[in-house]
Amino acid sequence: PMDCLRASEVCNQNSQCSSRFRIMRQCLVGRDRTTMLANRECQAALEVLQDSPLYDCRCKRGMKRELQCLQSYWSIHMGLNEGEELYETSPYEPMHLSDEFRLASIISAMDSASAKGNLCFDTGKPCNPCLDATKACNLNDTCKKQRTALLATCSPAAPISQAHEPCNRKRCHRGLRQFFDRVQTEFSYPLLFCSCRDKACAERRRQTIMPACSYEEKSKPNCLELRRTCRSDPLCRSRLADFHMNCQTTPHSITSCPNDNYHGCLVSYVGLIGSDVTPNYVDASHTNITISPWCGCRGSGNHEAECEAFLRDFRENTCLRNAIQAFGY
């Protein structure tokens, strides 16, 4: 399919399409879906747009002007979807096979790293792949620079300029997105998905994303409320839809992942880091990986089952767990 930036250009060349597209965007400004759907003009606009290339356009991860592309995508699909559903269609193109080859290269890089890392048994200390990943990062200029920048951004504000805020969460999230955008996956993924045999390693893994700033908060918001916040932001909404599409546990594959694509799941997981639904390891357990965004289901009223389903997609996600475990070996 065409990318949504290109599709909106094509649409803009056609006077009917471009005027409907403009109406559609106006319809969505109010954000009140039901009133929008009731509006005849909005309805008509939507009908016309369904025959335009915008209807099934997609975006690429990390493309130029990714955000504008996603905005174009949602300006059609927010009208099509009913809003409160559990899963939405991802605006991103499905992962290509070539990506999976890259995964293979990351795994083999990890293998050789851990082969070197095995030397740590000679020193009598337990082997710590997360520490090995940090070493590799520190000795790579880009990775070291980006990591240092990230840690500085997500550290408590310099005491001199101390406001009451312990750190700037928004900036930290931006820093995390930048880190994973700019650092080669050969270096960044091993930091996050290292396979641990002890607590020290697992704690290091948990701390990779600076959870004190990017993850934990004084109170836990309700997951459905968090999801709603996420869906009001085109980037977060896209990443969440992508995560659901690529990491959804499915009974139809051996690995429990859609199309047996571990890499797709990990990429979409990383895509969520730095968003409102930033997920992380909930503890430093090395035997039992539990991942969750920072939210709970208290106060869900009659939507509790839905809230728990949302949380289960993180906490009890066999596909995601398998993908992480497979990464380290």
Binding site: N222, L224, E225, R228, R298, G299, G301, N302, H303
Partner: peptide
């Protein structure tokens, strides 16, 4: 009874 926090406009 339960007091829902979501959606925020819920008054129940």
């Amino acid at each position: 009874d339960t007091t829902p926090v979501y959606p925020t406009n819920q008054v129940q």
